[in-house]
């Protein structure tokens, strides 16, 4: 494995049982992702984007083939090891934000750090930093219900970034946001990608997101049909 390649996908197949037969969601995917990429898996609904993200995020396992994330083979991980991988190295951003409604902004962002058993002082500093990145330092005591959709997604980004993971997986992160908020969110993520060298992988079919990507992987019927690098300097 090349040093900079942190995700290796080799002949990945994922099938789901449907009725008496099987549905092939991913069919022979070969991909690699390097450190600091800002990439997106794009394609229509049902093309296998979310399934691919789930497998990279160790939320699901391959039916066939091999997926290695940070030198750990996803198919061979136990539940505990997969949880540890997610806990220590991966961040997730969801379409519906999925903040915990009874907790404050601060507590939502703090949660991943509790699992890492960090001290209270370290947690406080890390949460403050994360909220500063997303411009929500003044909302620490607010509850999710008191925030706008854009603010909620920014909290979700802070939660994903607070432990400074190597990889952030974002599944349709702008689907519930208006254009202005979508751009704000994407600019925030782009900035974090540049400053912290975090690898961002999106699953999206939203043109607003696609415009920000540095690499676009087109998926159709579970196969990679095009993998293009975008030169952002032009």
């Amino acid at each position: 494995m090349e040093d900079s390649k942190i995700i290796l996908i080799d002949a990945l197949v994922k099938q789901f049982p449907i009725g008496g037969g099987e549905f092939t969601a991913l069919d022979g995917i070969d991909l690699t992702f390097g450190k600091g990429e800002f990439a997106g898996v794009v394609g229509p609904s049902g093309s296998g984007k979310t399934t691919l993200l789930n497998i990279i995020g160790s939320l699901d396992t391959p039916t066939d083939g091999r997926v290695s994330v940070l030198d750990q083979s996803i198919g061979d991980l136990s539940h505990k090891k997969a949880a540890r991988l997610r806990n220590e190295h991966l961040g997730f951003i969801f379409q519906t934000f999925n903040l915990l409604p009874v907790y404050t902004v601060f507590e939502n962002v703090e949660f991943p750090l509790l699992l890492l058993k960090m001290t209270a002082a370290s947690r406080k500093n890390a949460v403050q930093d994360a909220l500063e990145w997303v411009g929500l330092s003044n909302k620490v005591k607010s509850r999710p219900a008191q925030l706008s959709g854009g603010e909620c997604q920014r909290v979700a980004i802070a939660r994903a970034m607070v432990k400074r993971p190597e990889i952030v997986l974002a599944d349709e992160p702008t689907a519930n946001l208006d254009a202005e908020n979508s751009h704000n969110i994407l600019q925030t993520m782009e900035k974090l990608n540049a400053e912290l060298e975090t690898t961002f992988i999106f699953a999206t079919h939203d043109e607003k997101v696609i415009r920000y990507l540095h690499r676009k992987i087109h998926l159709e019927d579970g196969r990679v049909v095009k993998d293009e690098l975008i030169d952002k300097k032009n």
């Binding site: 939320l59 505990k80 991943p112």
Partner: peptide, 16 residues
């Protein structure tokens, strides 16, 4: 379910 899903995604294991 939402909370459980988020907690699992963030890194808690099912047993926890």
């Amino acid at each position: 379910y939402g909370e459980v899903g988020v907690r699992l995604a963030i890194g808690e294991n099912k047993g926890q």
